[in-house]
Simulated scan of single mutants.
Amino acid sequence: MFRFEEPTYLYLLLLLPLLAAFYLYSNFRRRKAIRKFGDPVLMAQLMPDVSKYRPDVKFWLVFAAIGLFAVLLARPQFGSKLETVKRQGVEVMIALDISNSMLAQDVQPSRLEKAKRLVAQLVDRMENDKVGMIVFAGDAFTQLPITSDYISAKMFLESINPSLISKQGTAIGAAINLATRSFTPQEGVGRSVIVITDGENHEGGAVEAAKAAAEKGIQVNVLGVGMPDGAPIPVEGTNDFRRDREGNVVVTRLNEQMCQEIAQAGDGIYVRVDNSNAAQKAITQEINKMAKADVETQVYTEFNEQFQAVAWIILLLLLAEMLILERKNPLFRNIHLFKKEERYDDEK
């Protein structure tokens, strides 16, 4: 893949046609002035050391060098490389509830979509931190291992939906345990698990998992999505709602008590996610309070600078222009590579 990091400088190439037009016009004026003094063939014989082609060669060499200099300023990039950089930050594992209850629309546009937008905002505000992602319903699995590649994090986030896990339920404890095992072994870095859920825990063990994480120095924060009054769960592709075995519409409610207990056991905070940005600001402030440490990170750089090759070509062109003299070399005056030999036939 190839690109220019600073493509604005390529507009300098628009000056090249003007430069060429000016040079051709000056040549025309020069030839016109020579014709005023006499026949051009005779004038050429009177000036045997003046080269007809060398000035043109010198100009076009400089012309090419100027064009390549504009390309150089635009910073051509090609290929890829892997860099090791040191960053000072924290590690955050996001555990996102994708059970069917997260489709409820008591928070607009839905609990799940609101949660995904909140995660995207959190990632956008990260600079030197590492982030990973776990999704859970009746079971939990890693959607994205902990990384500093924020572009990949947002890409994976877009693909999240309840169909990723066939087993329904809300296994918050399993998600916290998986997140606890997902951090790097680096010492001295702040670690946080952010659980985003409506709190309808059907599997148990969530409070115990949060407490175990806190004992390892991992903070567990909980963002509760939804409203205590609850809302029905829409059936995708229809205008109907999910119903129980008796045919009654199922109403899912935010279990704030459960969310608060998990956050308290995990030495973290609980924040309700509503239709404002208050939750995102609160959790960002909490992350910023955590201890930050230097972390060595392998960063994949998709584009690698290629200006060195262009610079060498420019240097060679300019050296060639300097070495070419405008006058003919006396040593080669009588050598005519492109002139046909004249033959005279003495026979009548």
Rank of each mutant, 00 (worst) to 15 (best):
Phe2Gly: 01
Phe4Cys: 10
Phe4Arg: 13
Thr8Lys: 03
Leu13Glu: 06
Pro17Thr: 04
Ala20Leu: 13
Ala21Tyr: 10
Ile34Thr: 07
Phe37Ile: 15
Gly38Lys: 05
Asp39Tyr: 03
Pro40Asn: 10
Val41Arg: 15
Met43Trp: 07
Met43Gln: 15
Gln45Met: 15
Leu46Phe: 11
Ser51Asp: 12
Ser51Leu: 08
Lys58Asn: 13
Lys58Gly: 02
Lys58Asp: 03
Val62Trp: 02
Ala65Gly: 08
Ile66Trp: 00
Phe69Met: 12
Leu72Pro: 00
Lys86Phe: 04
Val92Lys: 06
Ile94Thr: 02
Ala95Cys: 12
Leu96Trp: 08
Ser99His: 07
Asn100Ile: 11
Asp106Leu: 06
Gln108Val: 12
Leu112Ser: 00
Gln121Phe: 08
Gln121Gly: 15
Leu122Gln: 06
Val123Thr: 09
Arg125Asn: 15
Met126Asn: 07
Val131Trp: 10
Val131Met: 14
Val135His: 12
Phe136Thr: 06
Phe136Gly: 01
Ala137Asn: 07
Asp139Arg: 14
Asp139Leu: 08
Ala140Gln: 03
Phe141Lys: 03
Thr142Lys: 04
Lys154Val: 07
Glu158Thr: 13
Asn161Cys: 05
Ser163Ile: 05
Ile165Gly: 11
Lys167Gln: 15
Thr170Glu: 11
Thr170Tyr: 05
Ile172Asp: 04
Asn177Cys: 00
Arg181Ala: 09
Ile194Thr: 05
Ile196Gly: 00
Thr197His: 03
Asp198Ser: 07
Glu200Thr: 04
Glu200Arg: 12
Ala210Val: 06
Lys211Met: 05
Ala213His: 03
Ala214Val: 07
Ile218Met: 09
Ile218Thr: 01
Ile218Ser: 06
Gln219Gly: 01
Val220Ser: 02
Val225Arg: 05
Ala231Glu: 09
Ala231Arg: 05
Pro232Met: 04
Val235Pro: 00
Asp240Gln: 14
Asp240Ser: 13
Arg243Thr: 13
Val250Trp: 01
Leu254Ser: 07
Leu254Lys: 08
Gln257Met: 01
Glu261His: 05
Ala263Tyr: 10
Ala263Gln: 08
Asp267Asn: 14
Asn275Val: 08
Asn275Lys: 11
Lys281Phe: 04
Lys281Gln: 12
Ala282Trp: 04
Ile287His: 00
Lys289Leu: 13
Tyr300Ser: 15
Phe303Pro: 00
Phe303Cys: 05
Gln306Ala: 14
Ile313Met: 11
Ile314Arg: 01
Leu317Thr: 08
Leu317Glu: 07
Leu318Ala: 10
Ala320Gly: 10
Ala320Thr: 12
Glu321Val: 07
Met322Glu: 01
Leu323Phe: 13
Glu326Gly: 12
Lys340Ile: 00
Tyr344Asp: 13
Tyr344Lys: 08
Asp345Gln: 15
Asp346Val: 08
